[in-house]
C-alpha cells in the first residue's frame, strides 16, 4: 500500500510538471499572437497610399513614411553589398581552412561579435566615420549594419559549407581539380541555397535594427538618395513616432510597424519553407 501511495505521488508530480512545461509553451505563443494581432489591429487602419509615399509633415497635416521606406531599402542594400561578400568569404575560410589557430581565433571573435550590443557598433562607426566627416550619413548607417551582418553571415555560411559531404571534394580533387576550383565550382554551388537562407535571415535581422542607426544615419524629413547625407529609416522613424507626444504619431508608428514586421515575418516564413526539407 505504501508503495502505491509513493508511486501515485510520483506520477502526480510528473503530471503536474509536464503540464507546466506545456503551459510555458502556450504562454509564449499567446504573447506572440497578442503582439502580432495588436500590430495588425492598430496598423491596418492607418495605412494608405498617401502614408506609404509621402514624407513626414507637421503633426495634423498627414504625411507618411515614403522616405523612410526608401532610406531603409538603400541602407539595407548597401549594407548587404559590403557585408555579404566579406561574411561569406570569411565563412568559406572557416569551413575549408579554419581548423588551425587562426581559424579558431576568427571563429571565437565572430561569435563574441554577434553578442555585442548593436548600439556599440553604432558608437564605433560614429567615432570612425561620422566624427571625421562631421556629419551623419546613410553610408555610416549602412556600414554599421554591415558590421552587424558580417559575423552572422560568416557563421551560417561556415555551417552550411560543412554540411557538404567530404566525398564531393575528394572526387573533384581526384579528377585533378585544383583546390580553389573544388571550393568555387563544387562546394559553393552545393551549399548555395543554405548560404542564401543565411543571408536572407541576416538581411531580416538588420532591417529591424534601430540602435546602430540612431546617430550614424540619424534621420531626414525628405526623400534622400545620396548616401553621404543623413538618411531616414523605418525603424528610427518608428522610434520617433512612438516617443512623440501626439496620438496621430502613435498611429503612424503602428502602421509603420505593421509594414516592418510584415516584411520580416515574410522573409522568415519563406526561409522556413525552403529549409523545411533539410531539418
Amino acid at each position: 500500500m505504501a508503495n502505491d501511495i509513493a508511486h501515485n505521488r510520483r506520477k502526480f508530480v510528473s503530471g503536474v510538471m509536464t503540464s507546466l512545461t506545456a503551459a510555458c509553451a502556450t504562454f509564449v505563443i499567446a504573447i506572440l499572437v497578442i503582439i502580432l494581432a495588436y500590430i495588425a489591429y492598430r496598423g491596418f487602419s492607418a495605412i494608405s497610399w498617401e502614408f506609404l509615399t509621402e514624407t513626414p509633415k507637421p503633426v495634423g497635416e498627414g504625411g507618411g513614411i515614403g522616405n523612410a521606406i526608401v532610406g531603409s531599402g538603400i541602407m539595407t542594400v548597401l549594407a548587404s553589398l559590403i557585408g555579404l561578400p566579406i561574411g561569406i568569404g570569411a565563412g568559406v575560410y572557416l569551413a575549408e581552412f579554419g581548423d588551425k589557430w587562426f581559424g579558431t581565433t576568427v571563429r571565437f571573435f565572430a561569435d563574441t561579435l554577434i553578442g555585442v550590443p548593436s548600439i556599440i557598433v553604432g558608437i564605433f562607426v560614429y567615432t570612425l566615420i561620422v566624427l571625421p566627416m562631421t556629419r551623419q550619413s546613410g553610408f555610416a548607417g549602412s556600414l554599421s549594419l554591415a558590421i552587424i551582418m558580417i559575423p552572422i553571415v560568416a557563421r551560417t555560411t561556415e555551417e552550411m559549407i560543412r554540411l557538404v559531404p567530404k566525398s564531393m571534394r575528394e572526387g573533384a580533387l581526384a579528377l585533378g581539380a585544383p583546390q580553389w576550383r573544388v571550393t568555387w565550382n563544387i562546394v559553393l554551388p552545393a551549399a548555395a541555397s543554405g548560404i542564401a537562407t543565411g543571408a536572407m535571415l541576416a538581411i531580416a535581422r538588420i532591417s529591424g535594427e534601430t540602435a546602430p542607426l540612431l546617430f550614424t544615419a540619424l534621420n531626414s524629413r525628405f526623400y534622400n538618395f545620396y548616401v553621404d547625407q543623413p538618411m531616414s529609416s523605418l525603424t528610427v522613424q518608428i522610434y520617433n513616432f512612438a516617443t512623440g507626444p501626439f496620438e496621430v504619431e502613435h498611429q503612424m508608428a503602428w502602421a509603420a510597424t505593421l509594414i516592418l514586421v510584415g516584411l520580416i515575418l515574410i522573409i522568415n516564413i519563406i526561409v522556413r519553407m525552403f529549409t523545411k526539407k533539410k531539418y
Partner: peptide, 18 residues
C-alpha cells in the same frame, strides 16, 4: 513560433511596451 518572437525587432517590442 518561438523563433519568430526573436525575429521581431527591438523597437517594435518598445512600441508594444509603451
Amino acid at each position: 513560433m518561438v523563433e519568430l518572437l526573436a525575429a521581431i525587432p527591438s523597437v517594435v517590442y518598445g512600441l508594444w511596451g509603451i
